[in-house]
Simulated assay, not measured.
Amino acid sequence: MKNSFSDNKQVKVVSTFSELVNSPFQGTMNAICWSRNLVGDFQEIVAKLELKENMTEISVDDLLALQLSEKGNLARDILLSDIQLLTDFGASPSLNLLKCYERDDELDFISTDVYSYHVDRSPIATDTFLCTYHGAASDILPNDQVEQKISIPEIREKLKELHEGSEAEFEAFLEEYFFDLHYQPKPNAIPINLGIGHLWRLAVDHPTQQVLPCVHRAPIEKDGVYRLLLIC
């Protein structure tokens, strides 16, 4: 089945985990998708897991303790396999059951929560891995369809008023509070939805990265529908 993102220059679509982790980012391509049509009943797993507060990390033991139907077992096997693949690769995957993330509404002119388009930053060479098995899926945007929020004059001026320090200290202030990681979509921006069941690798901002980091955001959750999300 052809994906809506398969013709996009930002995305490379692969068919194995090995290709996912070994394919280099290059040019404008900073997102790689292991395209999958998963079998199994992930809804059953979500229904049997216990949500504590707005987000709960689900352990392998939590998964193994569930009494599941045949289709539920198929879904659990996929989750365990993905966790093992990423762990063996050297990543630290976290499986999350999610009602919603915390919102950042402290400032009315700029948001720095995960619902805002942003990039991930790391001091070491790493990538972000992401898969949504149930619920709403994340979006990404090409880098030429976004503008860094701190470069928008009215936002920059309000941040300077908030800072009240020297110009030399201002750039460090923007980094310290992660304002520089967030982006505003341009008027005609077309988001790419990451879909359900595909395992993604997104480029991160770090010193040795050869491409621009991938701009992405968490989705607004559907009412009453929990997300089941693997991320590292």
Rank of each mutant, 00 (worst) to 15 (best):
K48A: 14
F89L: 12
K52H: 01
L194Y: 12
E44C: 06
H206T: 02
S94W: 00
L38N: 06
L98A: 03
V46I: 11
V60K: 06
W200D: 07
L66Q: 06
E50C: 07
D223E: 13
S166M: 12
S35Q: 15
Y101N: 06
A218F: 07
E53K: 12
E164H: 11
L230V: 01
N54P: 01
D108W: 04
I110A: 04
L159V: 13
K158H: 05
Q10C: 14
T126F: 07
N73F: 08
I231V: 09
S59Q: 08
L181E: 11
R121Y: 09
P187S: 09
D223V: 15
E167N: 14
W34P: 02
D61W: 02
F170P: 00
I196C: 05
D61H: 07
L38M: 06
E53T: 10
A91G: 04
P191C: 01
P24S: 05
A65G: 05
D139Y: 11
F173R: 08
N37M: 08
A91K: 05
R156D: 13
D223G: 10
V215Q: 09
Q67A: 10
L80E: 08
Q10G: 12
I45P: 09
T132H: 02
V119I: 15
L66V: 05
L159E: 13
K99A: 15
I124N: 10
K12D: 00
D180M: 12
A189C: 08
E169F: 13
A218R: 04
H182C: 12
E164Y: 09
L212A: 15
D120M: 07
R103M: 03
I78S: 09
A203D: 05
I220T: 14
K48P: 07
P142M: 02
I220L: 15
I110F: 03
H134E: 09
D139Q: 14
N96T: 13
A189R: 09
G90M: 03
I58Q: 04
P207C: 09
N96K: 10
P185M: 09
G40E: 05
H182W: 07
V14R: 00
V204D: 06
H118G: 06
F170T: 08
V14N: 00
D113V: 11
L202S: 11
H206R: 06
Y133A: 14
V60G: 05
L212I: 06
A65M: 08
A65I: 03
P191D: 00
R227Q: 12
C232A: 11
S18L: 03
